[in-house]
Amino acid sequence: MWQKAQDDLAGHGFTVLAVALDTAEAARPWIEAAKPTYPTLIDRDHHVAALYGMINVPEAVWIDEGGRIVRPTENAGWYDGFRSRDPVTGAMPDDVAEATARAKRVYMEAVADWARNGAASRHALPPATVREKVRGSSDDVALAQAHFRLATWFLANGEEARAAPHVAQARRLHPESWTIFRQTYGRNDQGLATGDEFRARVAALGERRYYPKVDIEGMP
């Protein structure tokens, strides 16, 4: 999906800049399989998540030619379809599958509109609107990020036991962060952090979205 945007829009002075909130080791097979033509960076410590207030993937920020944010961090067009999958067959109801496809289409059309029209795009927001849309943060979140930084440093040095208390603190202090939770949660055979505790956390969202609705006309 990002590769198609890169192929279609690079000629308009546009680039995808992908950041893996992940270890190089875990990200490598995905990057080598996809062979993207856009840059894909490795952010083991989730530094970009801290800078931009990201709490999930995929989340995107639109930055114009002058380095100014024209859309702050938001869900990059994903829809909660996975929550409606049949637990046995994995099948998704038709209307949910349609909404999932529509969310991606509408979002990527907005990206394309911005790539082609720049500041004239209705999806490129003026500074006052950008300021309003910046997500709130808190002392707890800042402290969680510091604990997470300490945890990733120990993990990178192979010291899981010394990382553990700081993983626990980071999760406790920033419970809304899926990136902190899933980075530090056990993986299944496919490398996915989608076990029982993850499913329970998603279920606890109730009516709230896992991928919040994007404020673009036509988004489901």
């Binding site: 893996a20 530094h47 970009v48 800078l51 995107a60 030619e65 380095g67 990059a76 490398g191």
Partner: peptide, 30 residues
Amino acid sequence: DFTLPDLDGRPHRLSDYRGRKVFLVSWASW
């Protein structure tokens, strides 16, 4: 601004992409 490596260890700085519209997007294997 930030600087991060790609898989080959080559550093990329966000501000190196000035002059282009940058779609900065997060992802993960997990």
